[in-house]
């Protein structure tokens, strides 16, 4: 693929990574991380590595994002949770 395509993908990879690490709102950071994973999967497809792209797409932008969101939702509710730790 052309250099323009690669530079486009790289620019947005860096942008979403910076957003994910610097933004204050956790939900936006998690969504930005998910976009990062999708872009990385696209880059892997362009580099002709379909197995890696499939793994990246399913696990990182599917499962990891949902686990982050579950962790985020569980730590945002105060007083409505009964558990013995902490």
């Amino acid at each position: 693929m052309s250099a323009l395509f690669y530079s486009f993908v790289c620019f947005f990879l860096i942008l979403t990574a910076l957003v994910a690490s610097e933004i204050k709102d956790i939900l936006s950071a998690v969504i930005s991380l998910s976009v990062f994973s999708v872009l990385l999967a696209i880059a892997f497809v362009a580099l002709q590595a379909p197995d890696v792209a499939l793994t990246q797409a399913v696990i990182s932008s599917g499962l990891i994002t949902s686990l982050f969101l579950v962790a985020y939702s569980q730590t945002q509710k105060e007083g409505r949770r009964e558990n013995d730790e902490e």
Binding site: P50, D51, L54, T55, V58, I59, L63
Partner: peptide, 12 residues
């Protein structure tokens, strides 16, 4: 393309 890891992740 595929395999155990990818398929297992889709099951999950």
């Amino acid at each position: 393309p595929g395999g155990g890891f990818q398929g297992g992740a889709v099951f999950a």
